[in-house]
Amino acid sequence: MKTLHFKVGLFAATTLLFGAIFVLYILYARGFFEDTYRLQLAASTADGVAPGVPLVFSGIEIGRVSTLGLNDNGGIVIHAELLARNAKWLKENSTFTLDKPIVGGAKIRIDSPDLKAPALPENSTMLLLTSDVTKEIPILVERVKAILANVEHLTRKDGEVNGTLANLETMTGRMTGEYGMLEGILGSPEKARGVTDSLDKTRALITKLDSLALKMDGMAAKADTWLFAPDGVALQTRDALAQVKLMLADAQSSLKKADALMTNAVAISADVKEGTQDFAALRTEIDDAVRKANALVNEINKKWPFARDPEVKLP
């Protein structure tokens, strides 16, 4: 009988103790032992706000809307209550946003960007912003629809994207050929070979023109001795020499042109886009330059018949 009484007494005491602790804890949780902090929120509409809507800071509920009503100017005033221990999260620069998610009830989100800012005094009135997702959905859907239609148009079977991709594929295919990039841009190995050949020939031509200029130097030296000879060649050849001067100027300009063409040719390989456009012009100019150079050499040959290799080969 004694142990029975002891057991029942222990049971009752433990249960009562737990019950009392729980009730005290609930009293603490509901803020029975501390002050209530009040706050007013001004809003343009009370849509979605009702007594009991939670105030949430960083995802944790810290208070609730107690009542709401109209002020003298017809604006909405929402009264919210927080426990004093939670009021420390409210700062003067805090923002209050009404969140109405698609799932779950409405809540007032509090954002305090600077927790070192001065605390919000009690009973102050703050502005309640609204971010209503449900209102934005139709607009969003319209815009997404338009974007999707565009994407669909671009990716249709004979669409631009597909065409571009096909072109790109042929181009990269050509690029893997013998002449690489050049073939890719010009379209076929034959054309690419034409360009490289032209470049080779231009190089040869420049070397020839170089040696020609050296020869001209030598001739000028010989002419000097002739010129100052006592038998008066200078006098006889004065007109002829004036002509040669003109021809030399012409040759110089031709050389300059060839030089510019060379630069252009280098630019072709660098800036292929312009190169393809200039390719025809380049070809004619090279031809022209070579023709002129040939004419010059022939002319000189006529005047100076001791020249050995007068021919400049056309590419």
Partner: peptide, 17 residues
Amino acid sequence: FDAFTQILAKVFNFKIL
């Protein structure tokens, strides 16, 4: 603890208890 306390406070008002 704080979050849980808040939830308990929400669920257990005195009418419910």
